[in-house]
Simulated scan of single mutants.
Amino acid sequence: MAVGEVLFICLEFIGTVSFAVSGAMAALEKRVDLFGVIFLGITTALAGGILRDVIIGRVPPSAFADSRYMIVAGVTSAVVFLAALLAKDYYKNNVDTVNAVNNVFDAAGLGVFTITGAKVAIYAGHPENGFFVIFLGMVTGIGGGVLRDLMIGEIPLVLRKRIYAVASILGGIVYYQMFSQQFNDTAAIFAGAGVTFGMRMLATIFKWNLPKAFE
């Protein structure tokens, strides 16, 4: 197995774990049961990749062709539920800390999946189509979170708060520009994912939001 392929698989699993944690923690805030936590964790982790694969015509999508992704997402979500169950008093009394941890995992998942989505577009034979590469990276990064928010009855975070899709787009642009200029791929991956992650964290810390017509 080539080094690039190994790195891609590692990124996919890192993103899967990160978004599964984020989805499971969001589910816990809504006081759903064990199945709900696992289901929302899996949905958050895999929906973006499924949408990505459908767009490029990959059938069945990777999430169904390789059961490891679903198993990892499900186990991760179950572990989050168990941790919350065993430390429920801490969980209830430290909501701000829990939300901060959730945000870190969400930002990490966004950064990693933005890059894997971009790389899938390139692998699918579209290295010259920068718009498509960046778009597919964004779809992969935000797709799971959008579906998660809709399922828990929230306006998707991407539409209302804290630079989100914009962070994914910027990270995708950085990665694609470095790829186009033939930089080392590992360096491009870390730069693109780092920009996305960094923008999300800075937006949270400094409460950056895009302007709205009405407050």
Rank of each mutant, 00 (worst) to 15 (best):
A84F: 12
V104Y: 14
V95C: 02
V98L: 08
V75F: 14
V95I: 12
N99E: 12
A73M: 05
T97M: 05
Y91R: 01
K88D: 14
V101H: 05
I71Y: 07
A84W: 10
G74H: 08
A87D: 09
G74D: 09
A84T: 03
D89Y: 07
S77N: 02
L86P: 00
N102Q: 09
N102P: 00
T76R: 03
T97C: 02
K88N: 11
V98I: 15
N94Q: 09
A87T: 13
V72A: 15
F81Y: 15
N94T: 01
D89A: 04
V80M: 04
A78N: 04
D96A: 10
D89T: 08
V101S: 05
A100W: 11
V95N: 06
V79C: 11
V95D: 11
D89C: 00
V101P: 00
V79I: 15
D89P: 00
N93M: 08
L86V: 05
A84I: 00
K92I: 02
V75W: 08
N102G: 00
G74M: 07
N103E: 10
V98W: 09
A73W: 09
N102W: 13
V75T: 07
A84Y: 13
K92C: 01
T97Q: 08
I71E: 01
A100R: 14
A73F: 08
T97N: 08
V72D: 04
Y91F: 15
A78R: 06
L85Q: 10
A78W: 06
A87Y: 12
L82D: 05
L86A: 05
I71P: 01
V98H: 03
N93L: 09
V75D: 07
D96E: 14
V104Q: 11
V79H: 10
V80H: 05
I71G: 07
S77H: 06
D96T: 06
V98S: 01
V104W: 11
N102K: 09
F81H: 07
V80T: 04
N94G: 02
Y91C: 01
L86R: 13
V75G: 05
V79L: 15
K92T: 04
N99R: 03
A84M: 12
K88H: 14
A87E: 09
D96M: 06
L82S: 04
V104E: 09
V101G: 03
L82A: 14
